[in-house]
């Protein structure tokens, strides 16, 4: 069942699309905001609300990289792996995170605190390398800065 808050946010979108399925992506994002990820149950909840089949919702959900169809940690680290960051030392940053948290790309720490995901260009190439944790952008990274940044989310 969708919560009141979730429904409220989806309805907001429904008001501006000519067809209920038009709110599909917005609904996925809204539900993910509240539940952290999109479970099979969430797919079915959204499908029911938008008068879509679960298959139709899942077809959309699995297309987009920022819709998580697997559980993620409390904080999601989106590390930019695109070209400018790669030139500027993405590998070192990834290794530093890996060493600190013991996880690789696509993995979640055992305590469920962090999930590390690669992300295409964050659009801040002049301050590469960069990453985002939740909604915060961290730029001009060096491996040495990683510890301190991660600590803030513990």
């Amino acid at each position: 069942m969708l919560s009141h808050r979730e429904i409220e946010q989806i309805e907001h979108e429904l008001a501006i699309v000519p067809r209920r399925s038009g709110a599909c992506i917005e609904a996925l994002r809204a539900v993910q905001r509240h539940r952290g990820w999109i479970s099979d149950e969430a797919v079915r909840d959204i499908a029911r609300f938008l008068e879509m089949s679960p298959d139709e919702v899942d077809s959309v959900a699995t297309f987009y990289n920022l819709i998580y169809r697997k559980p993620v940690g409390r904080h999601v680290i989106l590390i930019c792996n695109s070209v400018s960051c790669w030139i500027m030392g993405y590998e070192g940053i990834r290794k530093a995170i890996g060493e600190k948290l013991g996880i690789g790309l696509g993995e979640t720490t055992k305590d469920g605190c962090f999930t590390l995901l690669p992300n295409p260009c964050l659009g801040t190439c002049d301050t590469a390398p960069a990453l985002m944790i939740d909604e915060d952008l961290h730029r001009d990274l060096t491996p040495g800065k990683i510890d301190g940044i991660l600590e803030r989310y513990r």
């Binding site: 699309v17 992506i25 959309v60």
Partner: peptide, 22 residues
């Protein structure tokens, strides 16, 4: 607000995304 993917920048892919599709 997009749910990600480079293809959304391609103008017709973008339209499909706006329609809530792949």
């Amino acid at each position: 607000i997009s749910a990600g993917r480079y293809m959304c920048g391609e103008e017709t892919g973008l339209l499909n995304a706006l329609e809530g599709k792949r």
